[in-house]
């Protein structure tokens, strides 16, 4: 058991290590480098040298990687290209805002997805299933920027219920933020919820067809007791990992949605830094987003390990 946990954590770090190399190499192969891009026409002579020194580009690539990686582990991503601010100071509030958005979407989305998935599975092929499944197919396929745009058009512009564009400073308090984030959260949660609902549905259907559920029925276990005791624990366990992947995928949706709502989170920073070719920031963003992905998956793995009696007792048997 302990060995398995350590192994998973180790694998997570290996993945992050590879990601860091990929992004580092990816930014290295850029035609020109950060300084020539930044300085544009002034990129020669003394000015260029100074820029190289400032960013430490005058040493070999692998040395730069090692020192960058060592600093990154301590949370220091160096300085952004354009501003003189350390990247971590730029990132801090942005991360906070994005996390608020993403976690709100997750906390709303997961319970709804569970309920919808279970309802559609238990009333399989009946009216509730057909109706909900049709809606989820639409919700699942429509890109965030479309649903976000439509939400703004209908709720904010036509009905004037909620603000359509988030116009708040980066470091606003949560309560002030709340009315502003309802629409973005709905836009983000929609795809994710639909996906998860469909996964839960098929997982529950699979378990409902199992021999042990048939046995429970033949034992005389009342329907809802059977659903909660015999079906759901076994159906939701394998769904955890898939849900984790969906959540990780949501990160991409967050970026797009933030742009639509002009929300001061990581998403806009991604677009800005890529447009400005601010490579140190891009590197930092890649690592941070990848770490979020890796930790969500790690969490899901550990949760599965903890809840699965088969894996829990693996060690005892061996």
């Amino acid at each position: 058991m302990l060995f398995l946990i350590i192994k998973r954590i180790l694998l997570g770090f290996i993945t992050l290590f590879i990601v860091s190399i990929i992004t580092f190499v990816g930014t290295e192969v850029l035609p020109g480098d950060a300084c020539t891009t930044y300085l544009e026409r002034q990129a020669f002579g003394e000015q260029l040298e100074a820029c190289y020194r400032r960013l430490g580009l005058n040493v070999p690539a692998y040395e730069r990687y090692v020192s960058w990686a060592l600093n990154a582990i301590q949370g220091d991503f160096g300085y952004s290209l354009s501003g003189e601010m350390p990247i971590k100071d730029v990132l801090g509030p942005r991360i906070k805002n994005s996390l608020v958005l993403a976690s709100a979407a997750i906390f709303i989305g997961i319970p709804i997805a569970l309920i919808l998935g279970i309802i559609t599975a238990l009333w399989r092929d009946k009216l509730p299933d057909v109706a909900i499944s049709t809606v989820t197919i639409f919700a699942m396929t429509i890109p965030e920027f479309i649903s976000a745009t439509l939400l703004i058009l209908i709720i904010a512009i036509w009905l004037e219920w909620l603000p359509g564009i988030v116009i708040v400073p980066t470091d606003v308090s949560f309560l002030e933020l709340l009315p502003n984030i309802i629409l973005p959260v709905v836009a983000i949660a929609m795809i994710m919820t639909a996906h998860m609902a469909r996964m839960v549905r098929s997982s529950v259907i699979q378990v409902m067809a199992s021999e042990y559920v048939q046995m429970a029925i033949l034992k005389g276990v009342p329907y809802w007791k059977m659903v909660f005791k015999h079906v759901l624990p076994n159906a939701l366990l394998p769904a955890i990992n898939v849900v984790a992947l969906t959540i990780a995928w949501l990160l991409g949706g967050v970026v797009v949605t933030e742009v639509v709502f002009n929300y001061p989170g990581l998403g806009r920073l991604v677009i800005e830094s890529i447009s400005n070719r601010d490579l140190p920031t891009v590197q930092a963003l890649a690592i941070i987003l990848a770490s979020i992905y890796v930790s969500i998956n790690l969490l899901a793995d550990l949760l599965t390990l903890m809840l699965n009696p088969r894996l829990k007792t693996l060690q005892i048997r061996k």
Binding site: T15, L16, I18, L251, A290
Partner: peptide, 12 residues
């Protein structure tokens, strides 16, 4: 390696 690529959000 595939896992590592998967963990970079697609949009980025």
């Amino acid at each position: 390696i595939v896992d590592a690529f998967l963990s970079i959000p697609w949009i980025l």
